[in-house]
Amino acid sequence: MTLSKLNNLYRQVILDHAAHPRHYGTLKDSKEQLELHNPTCGDILKLEVILKDNWIDEIAFSGSGCTISQASASIMTVEVLHKTPVQVEKMVTAFSELVTGEKTTGVQELLGDAMIFEGIAQFPARIKCATLAWKAIYQILQKAGRLE
């Protein structure tokens, strides 16, 4: 049964986040907003953050997409909350290396639950789905002038 391979991609945690996304919705009074599209599949991701002092104080996302992009967005919001832009930048790089299979070790602490996406390296066509939200958080911080 070849569908058993699918379990490497659709892990229970991923399915759970996709069905019950955390931080889904919009923020009142968010200054930083960004909308990203995945032009090949029509996915839309809207991300909002409120930065306080030097960390992400509040975060929310909305839009529509596949299981992988929704779950990745949900897990991303959990993992980057209360982190500093510099930390988030490191996480974005580590996540990108994780899902492309370039570097999969020594990043557990940095990425937390986002490690669950390790298996996606076996599904190259879906890497973009997983990275959309991470691209969004990077760009939003960049736009806000919070990255070097």
């Binding site: 070849t2 596949c66 066509a125």
Partner: peptide, 22 residues
Amino acid sequence: QLHPHDVATALDMQGVAVRAGH
């Protein structure tokens, strides 16, 4: 309510090549 990309990946796992998207 399944997203077409999820369906297409599952079909690909079963040897069936389809397109998903807009």
